[in-house]
């Protein structure tokens, strides 16, 4: 077996066409997950009645089971559920018309929410309680102190962790190809099997992923530098 170097470029051009799907599968879950994570983190910090236990259970379950399982359960489970409900109430919903990407997005969002809630929670805890007390002492409410004083710093401090998760989810999105969603890995698989050049196709896919990751790291570095500029002392 030999390696066909020029074919890597051919495969690259073919695979990169699936980049938008991979980006959607990364960005949408992280955006939705951020909202879920923020809510869950606040519920767990304030120990809100009833919701607290639910939030703990949610985080425990979604961090305690592999993401591939979430995708499978939701991909096979939700249509079943909808079919049952729709036949009971004569709703006439055709589950096979629901785009597959929707199931993947739901599964990834729920998983991202669980991971992000822990990142945000640790960020909140790391802001000194003294600042919270100072906020109360000038007459702010709990809500004002959280959203004006604690959260901005908590989120800025969490940027390295966010980047970590972003990169992780960029790569996790490749699981979607198991339910025949044609993202980067899926595309690489197709190119590979139609041309019978597996090594070249997956090297090309690897280059795309790595390139993306380097870009994300760069953006994160600049962003972190900008938003945490307040904490870099030095008397000027």
């Amino acid at each position: 077996m030999t390696i066909d170097i020029p074919f890597i470029w051919t495969a690259f051009k073919e695979i990169i066409k699936s980049l938008p799907i991979t980006l959607i599968l990364t960005l949408v879950p992280l955006a939705i997950g951020f909202l879920i994570g923020l809510t869950v983190a606040l519920v767990r910090i304030y120990k809100t009645r009833f919701l607290y236990q639910a939030a703990n259970g949610y985080v425990s379950f979604f961090r305690g089971t592999p993401i591939i399982m979430h995708i499978m359960v939701i991909y096979y489970g939700i249509p079943l559920l909808i079919d049952q409900v729709s036949s009971k109430f004569d709703l006439n919903i055709q589950t096979n018309k629901i785009p597959i990407i929707l199931f993947v997005l739901i599964a990834l969002s729920l998983a991202a929410g669980a991971y992000l809630s822990e990142i945000i929670r640790s960020g909140i805890i790391s802001v000194s309680t003294g600042q919270l007390e100072a906020a109360y002492s000038v007459g702010m409410t709990k809500y004002q102190a959280m959203f004006r004083i604690v959260l901005p710093q908590a989120l800025a401090l969490s940027i390295p962790n966010f980047t970590n998760l972003f990169v992780g989810f960029l790569h996790t999105s490749s699981i979607a190809f198991l339910v025949s969603e044609k993202e980067l890995t899926g595309a690489a698989n197709i190119v590979a099997s139609t041309n019978l050049k597996f090594l070249e196709a997956f090297i090309a896919a690897g280059i795309v992923y790595w390139g993306l990751t380097i870009m994300v790291e760069g953006i994160s570095f600049l962003l972190e530098k900008k938003v945490t500029s307040y904490s870099r002392g030095g008397v000027s």
């Binding site: 600042q131 007390e133 100072a134 109360y136 901005p152 904490s231």
Partner: peptide, 18 residues
């Protein structure tokens, strides 16, 4: 009642991002 008073803290407790 909190709004009736203001406090100066031992460790300053300034808002670090402001």
């Amino acid at each position: 009642i909190r709004k009736q008073s203001a406090m100066v803290f031992q460790h300053y407790n300034l808002f670090a991002h402001k």
